[in-house]
Design a binder for these strands. Structure first.
Lengths: 150, 150
DNA sequence: GCTCTTGGTAGCATGTTGCAACCGTCGTGA
DNA sequence: TCACGACGGTTGCAACATGCTACCAAGAGC
């Protein structure tokens, strides 16, 4: 069993998110799911993770409502793992991590995979943190405050 | 020593980001840094993490260029840990995780911390993944392709 | 029926984590 | 200037998680 409730009790949404995802492997599984992977074997080949670990992570993600286990789309008796709406909502997280990695961990010209807009084939616009009325916000322009139950 | 290079060799920026951050504790340290924590003790009290783990994580984050160790701002001989520009660039990642957590792991009315715009005190706008020309993109509207070294 | 692939489980060695105890330095008040 | 508490760690150890390899059962293809 994966360590449930490490940060779960926190009032911080970041902590709960982190706890729900489970670990880094899980995040890479989600990334692969966005890239079109569906089958156990696809994830395993793509990630190179041990099968027992993959089994455990998939189970956690399904239990957490991020993935869903459905009958295989090719008519075989096997099952596939697809993103639920909640899983798809992780898209900005993956995109944010991807952009951060692109900007900080690749030498100019170094080959890397890239996420592009299907329609134009062009890279995405950088994510922007905006205020309710659309101003661009830096970390210093924001603050955390507590919302008591209302 | 923390497991350097688990995913480092990957061409996927997501994997390199994940590897650079190290683990979930590190991400929560970064979150606290955005919230204004600077001192060892502040992180320790806020997170409740064991001190040896915190020591290791801070070292990893400094080595990775996410945090920087600087003389304390209050003139004491202690040191503080502050975000580098690279660390501040993680802001969208934290915001994305926070928004995902808010939307999926809190009952309506349940108390939680909230990130607000300093100027107006209002919650932020939800992050949007946009194409280069500003269209709103869903996961299905994007695809990953390889960029060979050019 | 035979064999290969898929999707796992089981057992074990190793690595990582968390806890508690300890320790040197800094700051402060008397 | 000396004592004492807070700060910022380090060390050792037990417990847990991870990864590797071998194994296995059911499906798919022939």
């Amino acid at each position: 069993m994966v360590s449930r409730t490490r940060f779960d009790d926190s009032e911080c949404p970041v902590a709960r998110s982190v706890d729900a995802i489970g670990d880094w492997w899980s995040l890479l599984i989600v990334r692969d799911a966005f890239d079109g992977s569906r089958r156990f074997g696809e994830f395993q080949r793509s990630l190179g993770v041990a099968k027992n670990i993959l089994t455990a992570r998939l189970r956690t993600l399904v239990a957490g409502g991020v993935l869903e286990s459905v009958p295989a789309s090719d008519g075989s008796a096997y099952r596939e793992y697809v993103l639920t709406p909640k899983g798809k909502a992780l898209f900005p997280v993956i995109v944010a991590l991807r952009q951060w990695g692109e900007q900080n961990f690749f030498a100019p010209g170094e080959s890397h995979s890239e996420l592009v807009d299907c329609r134009q084939g062009r890279p995405l616009r950088a994510l922007e943190v905006l205020s309710a009325d659309g101003r661009l916000l830096n970390p210093d322009d924001t603050t955390v405050h507590k919302v008591s139950s209302q």
